[in-house]
Amino acid sequence: MSVLVYTESDQGNFKKAALEAASYGKAVAEAMGTNLVALTFNANEASELGTYGVEKVLNINTVSAFNAKIYADAIKQAAEKEAATVVVLSASADSRYIAPLLSVGLKAGYASNVVTTPLSLNPFVVKRTAFTNKAFCNTEISTAIKIVGVSNNSFGLVENTTTTHIEDFSPSLVSSSTSVTSVDKASDKVSIADAEVVVSAGRGLKGPENWGMVEELAEVLGAATACSKPVSDLGWRPHSEHVGQTGKPVATNLYIAIGISGAIQHLAGINSSKIKVVINTDPEAPFFKAADYGIVGDAFEVVPKLIEKLKVFKAQNS
């Protein structure tokens, strides 16, 4: 028996979400009285996982490019080899791509968007978000093997240093007629999925030419930028920045909303962010009912001042 965590890396470096999944996996393994094993592909520094309680790492160096089918099958073989009864994945785009394939391969029930460690182990019940963050659903997984997809920033990074044993693993590889022909990824920008802070702006900013201050604020905070749906529909910002019920979900530690009214569809997608700050000229804007901190004011005055003050703050606190 063991808990297996798939620790995703980018250019060989573990993603923060992967380390969070490992932290989560450790808590589950401890509750079950068993060990935590990690599976990685092409990791530069597999021993880093020891910090988060991983006792054993299976490192695969025989697969170069990401392919969901091949990865899912390799994880399946690792789960079988380690007799894993729980498999943990993060909520990254690639992990969410893999998980349903793995679920069928392992005949293992899968719960996504999980926000807490199991409420009980027998029956195995986890709490997950549903109805796009308007509610939680306590879900029982009744198969022998369980797959848990952990929501970003829900469990956090928990250090639990242990000695790690690293093993090369060479599963037999399935074939796939799907291949990536080109990747278009801005390497200098923080993505919404990986961000701990998101700075988002809405139609209150009047036009795309006014996004300079949004980007500057994001840069000062090391944040990703996002927008409301009309802003992407109008073509002011790319679709990939559209957040909300019908856009990307946001689960960050801090979400700053500038000139966004706070429509139910917008709030649904960002509600699981821990701290929300709103800047809006209209004190009646619904966002004030959903936020932790608010400034009633004109974004064109408030945001530049906030940038200046934050620069001073960062200089003093770094």
């Binding site: 899968y110 019940v125 549903a130 029982e140 509600n271 932790d292 400034i295 009633v296 004109d298």
Partner: peptide, 26 residues
């Protein structure tokens, strides 16, 4: 089925927003 919903919960109601004056960014 391999999983099923046991029960649902709504998020806890949040406290009121703390308003900060626009002049008082600090």
């Amino acid at each position: 089925s391999e999983t099923h919903s046991v029960s649902f919960e709504k998020p806890a109601p949040r406290g009121a927003v703390k308003l900060v004056e626009a002049e008082n960014i600090d």
